[in-house]
Computed example of a mutant assay.
Amino acid sequence: MADLVTPAFPRGTTPSRRLVAAGLIRRTPGRTLTVRVTPAGVTGAIAKTGGAR
């Protein structure tokens, strides 16, 4: 039976692009959560927002 698995990149080659950063922002009443992931590590912050009027 033939091998049906194909690698994402042929052997001996590297992708021309790579992930630099990924993150998310989540807003809830009164707070904002920000998380950022980079090759150097993960950072995050929770900030109070100005409340609803």
Score class of each variant (00 low, 15 high):
49 T>P: 02
22 A>R: 08
31 R>N: 13
2 A>K: 07
52 A>M: 07
50 G>P: 06
1 M>H: 13
34 T>A: 04
31 R>T: 09
43 T>E: 15
34 T>S: 07
42 V>G: 01
28 T>G: 13
37 V>A: 11
37 V>K: 05
24 L>R: 08
10 P>D: 11
39 P>T: 11
26 R>C: 07
51 G>P: 04
38 T>Y: 02
21 A>H: 06
46 I>T: 13
51 G>Y: 09
47 A>Y: 02
48 K>G: 14
16 S>H: 00
49 T>E: 03
49 T>I: 01
42 V>N: 03
8 A>Q: 12
52 A>E: 11
42 V>K: 02
28 T>H: 02
12 G>Q: 12
10 P>L: 00
50 G>W: 10
19 L>Q: 06
21 A>W: 09
21 A>Y: 01
25 I>K: 14
13 T>R: 08
25 I>G: 13
20 V>Y: 14
17 R>Q: 12
11 R>A: 15
3 D>M: 05
23 G>D: 03
42 V>E: 03
37 V>H: 06
44 G>Y: 04
10 P>K: 12
53 R>S: 00
4 L>V: 05
18 R>C: 10
4 L>E: 10
31 R>H: 03
11 R>Y: 11
1 M>G: 13
22 A>M: 03
49 T>A: 12
29 P>M: 03
14 T>G: 10
13 T>S: 07
7 P>G: 04
23 G>C: 01
53 R>L: 07
11 R>T: 11
23 G>Q: 00
40 A>R: 14
53 R>Q: 02
8 A>K: 14
41 G>I: 02
25 I>S: 03
7 P>R: 08
13 T>I: 04
53 R>D: 02
51 G>D: 13
39 P>M: 03
53 R>W: 06
19 L>T: 02
42 V>P: 05
27 R>V: 07
45 A>W: 01
40 A>C: 05
12 G>K: 11
1 M>E: 10
41 G>D: 04
25 I>E: 14
31 R>Y: 13
29 P>C: 00
34 T>E: 13
21 A>R: 14
40 A>P: 03
18 R>P: 06
26 R>E: 12
13 T>Q: 15
37 V>P: 00
29 P>K: 01
41 G>Q: 01
38 T>R: 11
15 P>E: 09
22 A>D: 11
34 T>W: 08
25 I>V: 12
47 A>I: 01
8 A>Y: 15
53 R>K: 12
25 I>Q: 14
20 V>C: 08
33 L>I: 13
8 A>C: 06
49 T>S: 04
35 V>S: 12
1 M>A: 15
42 V>I: 15
37 V>S: 14
17 R>Y: 12
49 T>L: 09
52 A>H: 10
26 R>T: 14
53 R>H: 07
39 P>K: 11
18 R>N: 11
47 A>N: 02
15 P>D: 09
14 T>Y: 14
38 T>Q: 03
38 T>S: 07
19 L>K: 06
15 P>R: 06
17 R>A: 09
45 A>H: 06
23 G>V: 10
45 A>G: 08
38 T>E: 14
6 T>S: 07
42 V>A: 03
7 P>T: 06
23 G>I: 02
51 G>Q: 15
31 R>E: 05
25 I>F: 04
44 G>Q: 09
15 P>N: 08
18 R>S: 14
